[in-house]
């Protein structure tokens, strides 16, 4: 028990060592989760748009010359 307390105290520097490691972990995990969430969201949105788009493909292709 004493050993753990000594360890956590970091030789009196606990207030400096732990925030550094905590900030690093929070920023890294936060960045990862945010990036991953955005990717998943975009993937589902693009899939939905593609599903919407595919029936129109044939029509759009044939009339693409006039619409441009």
């Amino acid at each position: 028990m004493q050993a753990i307390q000594d360890y956590l105290a970091m030789g009196g520097y606990a207030a400096f060592v732990w925030p550094c490691f905590a900030a690093t972990l929070i920023v890294m995990i936060g960045l990862y989760v945010a990036s991953k969430q955005r990717l998943t969201k975009l993937q589902s949105e693009v899939a939905a748009l593609e599903a919407l788009d595919s029936p129109r493909q044939a029509r759009r292709r044939s009339s693409s010359e006039e619409t441009r």
Partner: peptide, 18 residues
């Protein structure tokens, strides 16, 4: 992270055009 985010940017461009 670069792979995830670059893919997101490419998808976002695709989403816009779609």
């Amino acid at each position: 992270l670069a792979i995830i985010r670059t893919k997101s940017e490419l998808l976002a461009a695709k989403q816009r055009s779609l």
